[in-house]
Design a protein around this nucleic acid. Structure first.
Lengths: 128, 128
DNA sequence: TATAGACCTTCCCATGATGGGAAGGTCAAG
DNA sequence: CTTGACCTTCCCATCATGGGAAGGTCTATA
């Protein structure tokens, strides 16, 4: 099938399929004589894996490792788990960061009258 | 003072000071005859405001609005509060998103043996 | 006064993952 | 054979930031 159908069936845009190929995340597919890329079921399978990993927030580089493990029938599951746990830790870190920001901002907003007057603890805080 | 000192005193890199000037977030400063940018206390004040707003996670465009309100002595605090609340809502949204991802990933990792065997619920899930 | 070296200038490039769009070639249905 | 949908590559933009090159300026010291 052509890239359009591969895109529709995998949920990965044609743009991104070409990009992933360009950075070596995906193998170069066969081509028709015309130059059109040709995909088969196993490509769709791999594309779906990539899309799902992206949905989980894995970076392309992490997905590269995950694909390698996925293709390795002798992989120790410990390696996969390690990547997953590192990702969880990273997400935890970001969540903590954003939560701290949100709480501070929420507090500042609560203390702002929010009326016609110019006095504002939010601006006062930003002013330092 | 020159840009280096302005940078050191405000916590905004010289690179970013020039960038902010380039996109019109900051006014064009006076220049020496040599072309060197010249900053004074009020510039430091503004730069610190910008840095602090960035620390809170506001986008440059939001900071543009905040600076406008900061400079407007007749601003209604309601406008500032509105921006802050929109930011809180945005942070809440992101936190929720990341939390959902983290929880799913954490659950998958927990169910992975993490040993020498290749069987792995994480890869199985990504596979779809 | 000459020079070293710290500082400044502008300009270009890269990041990460994604989309937009142009110019031009290919395919399939009518 | 034409039309329109599809494909190709290539370039550009995003957002905020940093790296670095090539070249000019400033200041302290020998």
């Amino acid at each position: 099938m052509n890239i359009g159908e591969a895109s529709a069936r995998s949920g990965v845009s044609a743009k991104m399929i070409r990009y992933y190929e360009g950075i070596g995340l995906l193998p170069e597919p066969d081509r028709r004589e015309s130059g059109y890329r040709l995909y088969d079921e196993s490509d769709i399978h791999r594309l779906r894996f990539v899309r799902r990993a992206r949905d989980f927030g894995f970076s392309v580089e992490r997905i590269r490792e995950l694909l390698r493990l996925w293709n390795d029938r002798k992989r120790p599951s410990a390696e996969v788990k390690k990547i997953a746990e590192a990702h969880v830790a990273e997400l935890d870190r970001k969540i903590g960061e954003l939560t701290a920001l949100r709480d501070s901002m929420k507090d500042l907003a609560k203390r702002c009258h929010g009326d016609q007057r110019p006095d504002c603890p939010i601006l006062a805080d930003l002013e330092g």
